[in-house]
Simulated scan of single mutants.
Amino acid sequence: MIPVRIAGLALDARQQPVVILKPLDEDLGHGRILPIWIGGLEAAAILKGADDTPPPRPLTLDLMRSMLEALDAEVERIAVTRIDDGTFYAEITLNTPLGDRVLDARPSDAIGLSLRTGSVIWVAEDVLDQAGIADEREEQVDEEEEVKAFSEFLEHVDPEDFQG
């Protein structure tokens, strides 16, 4: 397993949200990145998790964090474990009073929960080998502009845009 960070949240050429993960020990423009396509609502949840402003009412991932705290459980590990036919799979390992529990999760939900709990995200090495691409970025992306553009997209998106 390789520890990663969220290197960005972007829109591809078809306006589909992509979360980009990058190994912690690699610098910008070197090594690999792992793009994972997600839904618009999931991207909004990740974006909200990166924002320090609490929502007026708990969102689903905020509720999950509160439930874990109420049950004396904590997130031990977030891991993107495999890719099968283009679909990524993740697991959330919880440390509970009854012992460790491993839950199947969508990567977008696991990543969003990691932001809310401060948990490190891990990616299986074979997933990075199979789906990672060369990081050829030459200059630092202006995160504030990227977040602003993505937020504008989310304000105008219609859930029907994501139906098959």
Rank of each mutant, 00 (worst) to 15 (best):
V4T: 02
R5S: 09
R5M: 12
I6G: 04
I6S: 01
G8E: 04
A10Q: 08
A10S: 07
D12N: 15
P17E: 01
V18F: 14
K22L: 04
P23C: 03
L24K: 12
D25Q: 10
D25R: 07
D27I: 01
L28G: 02
G29F: 07
H30L: 11
G31R: 06
G31L: 10
I46H: 09
I46K: 04
I46W: 09
I46Y: 12
G49A: 04
G49N: 03
T53G: 04
P54F: 13
P55W: 08
R57M: 04
T60H: 06
S66Q: 15
E69Y: 05
V75R: 03
V75M: 02
R77D: 03
I78G: 05
A79S: 15
V80P: 05
D84N: 13
D85N: 12
D85R: 14
D85W: 00
A90T: 03
A90Y: 14
I92W: 10
T93W: 08
T93I: 14
N95T: 06
L98I: 01
L98V: 01
G99K: 05
V102K: 13
D104C: 08
P107L: 14
P107G: 12
P107F: 14
S108H: 13
D109H: 11
A110K: 07
I111R: 12
L113Q: 06
T117Q: 04
S119T: 13
D126G: 09
I133S: 14
I133N: 12
D135G: 09
E138P: 00
E139P: 00
E139M: 09
Q140Y: 06
Q140G: 00
E146W: 02
A149I: 09
A149Y: 12
A149E: 14
F150I: 02
L154E: 03
P159F: 10
D161W: 14
F162M: 12
F162L: 13
